[in-house]
Simulated scan of single mutants.
Amino acid sequence: MKKVLLLLAKGFEVYEASVFTDVIGWNLADGDRTTEVITCGMKKEVKSTFNLRITTDITIDEVNVDDYAALAIPGGFEEYGFYEDAYNEKFLQLIRKFHEKNKIIASICVAALPVGKSKILEGKKGTTYNMKNGIWQEKLREYGVNVVNEPIVIDDNIITSWNPSTAMDVAFKLLELLTSKEKSDFIREIMGFNVV
């Protein structure tokens, strides 16, 4: 079983988290049945953007990186405390540990910022939220990232994307990297998305 650790910071966007649970879950139910999502937070209960409360499977202190094939990180809103967790040293250290073990790291929107802050993207290509006059892309650039103004950027097993509109494509790309393009396209098709 290829497990994906879904790392939820306080103030995470539910939509951006749900794409991982759905795509990976559809593959578990109707695909090749080799993938599974495990949710994780700094605490057992995590309050999302817009105040939905989620009870995670485990806390960050219980993670054994060797148990997972990939790390998935949804973005979130500063106004709901996203960076309080996302910039916490435990959060950043977990990102570094996944990178050290050459695991896939998939982030959506501003989740690229803790990935950048962890220094694993230094000197590499990445992207992040591209609205609001590019201030978040500029912040990512401050972490030594070569910011590319494209919807999805992959460098060294690290996926970054620029806003919530890219979320489903990031999840399908993660599934492709975990299985194959053919298997990912099959899930895309049975979920009703156009195969590209």
Rank of each mutant, 00 (worst) to 15 (best):
N146M: 13
F172Y: 15
E79G: 12
V110G: 03
L28F: 14
N88M: 02
A9R: 00
S18C: 13
D185V: 06
T49I: 05
K101G: 07
L177P: 00
E100A: 14
G81I: 07
R96V: 14
P164K: 08
G126I: 00
E45V: 07
R188L: 09
E16Q: 13
P151F: 05
T35I: 03
L175H: 08
N130L: 03
I105A: 08
E16T: 08
K3W: 08
D155T: 09
K125E: 14
F12P: 01
R96K: 15
T49K: 08
D67M: 01
I105C: 09
T56H: 01
K47S: 01
L178W: 02
A29H: 14
E182H: 07
E45P: 01
T34Y: 07
N51R: 09
I158Q: 06
N51L: 08
L177M: 15
I158P: 04
W26A: 14
V153N: 13
D30N: 15
P114A: 05
E138R: 14
I73L: 14
K90P: 10
L5P: 02
R33N: 14
G123V: 00
T59E: 09
V153H: 09
F172T: 12
E78Y: 11
A111D: 12
T49Q: 06
T55F: 00
K43Q: 11
L6M: 12
L121G: 08
F91Y: 15
Y68F: 15
K183I: 01
G25H: 09
D61C: 05
I152N: 12
A86L: 11
V195L: 07
E62F: 00
F193M: 07
S184H: 05
F20D: 10
M191P: 03
I95V: 12
N102C: 08
K181R: 15
S165T: 15
F12L: 02
K117V: 02
N130T: 12
F91R: 02
I187L: 05
M168W: 15
W162F: 10
E182W: 10
Q137N: 14
P114M: 06
E79V: 13
M191T: 11
G134T: 13
T35N: 03
P74S: 05
G116T: 02
N163V: 01
S180K: 04
N149W: 04
I190S: 04
E84G: 10
M42Q: 07
T179E: 10
H99L: 06
K181I: 13
I24Y: 08
A171Q: 04
N88G: 02
W162A: 12
P164Y: 10
T21A: 04
F77G: 07
I108K: 01
E182F: 01
T56W: 01
K2L: 08
N102I: 00
L52T: 03
L94Y: 05
N51V: 05
I159N: 09
N64D: 14
L140D: 12
E84F: 09
G144H: 05
V23Q: 04
L113K: 04
N194M: 12
K103A: 08
V147C: 09
S118P: 06
F82T: 01
D85H: 03
L113I: 12
K132N: 14
D32Q: 15
C40W: 01
K183G: 03
